[in-house]
C-alpha cells in the first residue's frame, strides 16, 4: 500500500501547522505558511475527485444537449447542441484535458439555460431543472471544507 495524494497532502499541511509555522519568528511568514497549509488541504480534497466531477458533468451536459436539441429552439442553437451531444467522448482523462473538453460545454450550457428561461413552453421547465441539476452537481462535488489546523 502507498499513501494516497490526500494523506500525503494532509500530512504536509499538519507538519506546516504543528512543526514549521510555530518555529517561524516572523508573523507574516507564519500567516503565509498557514495559507499554504490550507491550500494543501484543499488540494487533498480535490485531487482524487476532480476528474470524476468533470466526467460526470460532461455526461450530464451531453444528455441535456441531446434532449434540448429535439425541442423548439432556434435552429442555430439546436445544431450546436446536437453537435456537442454527439462529439466524441473523452479519451484523455487527465484533469486538464477534461477541463478543455468541458469548457465549451459550459459555454453552451449558459446559452441554453438563458434560452430556456425565455421560453414559456411546458417542455422548457423540466429541461431548466435538469440544467440546475448539473450545476448543483458541480457545486456539490467541488464543495470544500476547512479543517482546523
Amino acid at each position: 500500500m502507498k499513501p494516497s495524494f490526500a494523506s500525503i497532502l494532509m500530512g504536509g499541511a499538519g507538519a506546516i501547522a504543528a512543526d514549521i509555522a510555530p518555529r517561524l519568528d516572523d508573523e507574516y511568514a507564519r500567516g503565509q505558511a498557514a495559507i499554504v497549509g490550507l491550500l494543501m488541504t484543499l488540494v487533498a480534497q480535490e485531487a482524487d475527485r476532480a476528474a470524476d466531477t468533470l466526467s460526470l458533468e460532461s455526461v450530464a451536459m451531453r444528455a441535456i444537449f441531446a434532449e434540448a436539441a429535439k425541442q423548439q429552439l432556434p435552429d442555430q442553437l439546436r445544431r450546436r447542441l446536437l453537435q456537442m451531444a454527439e462529439a466524441p467522448p473523452a479519451e484523455n482523462f487527465t484533469v486538464s484535458a477534461l477541463e478543455e473538453l468541458v469548457m465549451p460545454m459550459k459555454a453552451l450550457l449558459i446559452e441554453l439555460h438563458e434560452a430556456l428561461e425565455d421560453r414559456a413552453d411546458a417542455w422548457a421547465r423540466p429541461l431548466e431543472k435538469k440544467v440546475w441539476d448539473v450545476l448543483c452537481l458541480g457545486a456539490d462535488h467541488r464543495s470544500l471544507y476547512l479543517p482546523i489546523l
Partner: peptide, 9 residues
Amino acid sequence: LEPQPIAAA
C-alpha cells in the same frame, strides 16, 4: 478563466 454558468444564471 472559464465559463461561469452559475454566476451567469
